[in-house]
Design a protein around this nucleic acid. Structure first.
Lengths: 343, 343
DNA sequence: GGTGGCGATGTTAGCCCTCACATTCTCGGA
DNA sequence: TCCGAGAATGTGAGGGCTAACATCGCCACC
């Protein structure tokens, strides 16, 4: 960390920023004409426009978004609620994509971190964002609780909940289908006894994945042998794995994300269980590290950046500014080394 | 992704938000008295204060930050420049900590993503943030280039560059010392021939780590056998590892982050090189997965949340609002299974 | 030559706050 | 009893911008 600019480090000794009126004076027109040039109003003569542009350049004029927002009544700020879990790769890249797409559309992104376990923290974050004049919110994180405190706190403002859909709702990733595909893959490999390490309660995607998995098994007349609950971290996967392995009785495990799968791999190694010879493991997300785990992880790929883009599209559509996004394609199965035919 | 609130979903049919004057009218005072209550001005009688508070509650009044910013001339918005690399765990958790600390201090955080390789993108992001009225910027990402386009674009505004310090500058993580410690550990294990997988050019921390590593070796009369350059991803570590291993001539490798170390582990496995028996590997960051790699990774721990907190402290101090933060403790060596005595 | 119409430009009034400067009220001391 | 200090409250003027309406030319047309 280093200080780079001192305050008032500027070229000129920080004169008050020029306003639209300064520009007007310099260009010899009224401030309104300047405003028109700024907003590309058609009825401005070419000569005038150029003169104003020149003055703008000369004075290093930069219109104040604040004033504009005040006059205009709307801020073009989008609030992103970032669950602490968002520090994981997937959500983090989603946010990157959201910002990118938002800026392209002329919006700004303000973030607020929420502790997904704490309704008060959620409400406070929403309040904070709304205080800033956010015109819409995107929640990256647990979706179940969103129907509760967040949606309530955000009443009156469009709210898009990501990672939380089911049945291909408006361009969302279909987590349910992802769970089914995991099961199908394992089924096709001949497994009949499978365990599941689920994501934490409260996360809609955790629940959808688990239900999709169970549904596909049910269709084959089966059910998960046992289900452990983790908190998305490798550590929790490791612990859940140790427990599961101690009990035994299955030949394959579906983990609700790649990190937990990594933890399970670790637990298996420690328990002397060979993956995939004795145990098949399948993850979810296809984070970029998954291909380098030992063994390389079979998983379901989610396109996080695309998810981010669609979140913005969805929000803009709600705001009345564009078409609703297409449904997302279902997560894609990436087969690597961690799954094999039933021993 | 799901739409949760429709526009105008609110309880009351979205009447224009009440203003300070509406509150004033309801409380039977002047708008200025309301303002004073809002700003905790001492000279307001208890009775009046309560009356106003009541009106505020009744009307669901929420002061407009926009108007306040305009009148006040300053926005309390902090801009965070997020390099695309920030989608990795470390930087992502730093940002989470930044937001948390900022909000506690009454600031808001606006983000803009930069493509670290592209000066134009950097300048655009800075412009964007400045347009929003950001009063200070924090750069999470490559620091070398910051002295260039970013610092230039941000002239006149305090800029804190994170992850970029050396010699314990103002509460920064000392990356140079981290590199030295990695070398020292390997040296103590008896290694004399070591390679390095560095982070990409342009990232100050990549350079600092590499130089710290080389400096410590130099003090022992040694030099790195070979240096490969990655881009922080596991994939790049894997490729660099393959190359390095093909050439050979070393018994230990220092990787500039944990992901690249994971890639190297993968490459070693493929090449039939046993870690740590034949090759010691040390990473950097201690991301939460590192303990679960195969083998568990020896690494240098960085306290990312603390880094985020100090970034805010540093910025506020530059803004004139607080004491400069203490220097960060040096990264801590975490010894796990991936390093052992020289074969 | 008068006039309607339209393009180019200007004027005024806010948006919702805060600041600087009144004004009013209250109370203690000479 | 009256004055002044200081607390409590109010008034007016912006801050930088946009929206709505007003004005001014100018040209075409009869």
């Amino acid at each position: 960390m280093a200080r780079v600019n001192a305050v008032g480090d500027s070229e000129h000794s920080r004169a008050a920023a020029p306003s639209i009126r300064d520009v007007a004076r310099a260009a010899g027109v009224s401030h309104m004409t300047v405003s028109r040039v700024l907003n590309r109003h058609p009825n401005v003569s070419e000569a005038t426009r150029e003169r104003v542009q020149q003055a703008i350049t000369d004075l290093h004029f930069r219109p104040s978004r604040t004033a504009r927002a005040l006059a205009h009544g709307s801020s073009r700020v989008i609030g992103v609620l970032e669950a602490t879990g968002a520090r994981f790769h997937g959500p983090a890249s989603t946010i990157v994509a959201i910002e990118d797409a938002a800026r392209t559309e002329g919006f700004s992104v303000m973030i607020a971190v929420i502790d997904a376990a704490d309704a008060a923290s959620e409400a406070a974050a929403v309040e904070h964002l709304l205080d800033q004049g956010a015109i819409g919110l995107i929640l990256v994180g647990p979706g179940t609780t969103a129907s509760g405190s967040i949606a309530e706190a955000a009443s009156g403002v469009p709210l898009v909940v990501m990672h939380a859909a089911e049945g291909a709702d408006r361009g969302a990733a279909d987590q349910f289908e992802g769970g089914r595909r995991a099961a199908r893959h394992l089924l096709e490999l001949g497994h009949t006894a499978m365990a599941h390490i689920a994501g934490p309660a409260g996360w809609l995607e955790a629940e959808s994945r688990a239900r999709g998995f169970a549904a596909e098994l049910a269709a084959a007349g089966l059910a998960p042998v046992s289900v452990a609950v983790g908190d998305w971290t490798a550590e929790s996967g490791y612990r859940a794995g140790l427990e599961l392995l101690a009990a035994g009785g299955f030949t394959a495990v579906f983990c609700a994300n790649d990190q937990m799968a990594l933890g399970l791999l670790h637990a298996a190694r420690e328990a002397g269980v060979d993956v995939p010879a004795q145990l098949s493991v399948i993850g979810y997300d296809d984070i970029s590290e998954a291909a380098h785990y030992a063994p390389a992880l079979t998983t379901l790929r989610q396109d996080f950046p695309e998810l981010g883009r669609r979140a913005i599209a969805e929000l803009l559509s709600q705001l009345g500014g564009g078409p609703a996004p297409e449904p997302m394609p279902a997560p894609e199965l990436i087969v690597r080394e961690s799954t094999s035919a039933r021993p």
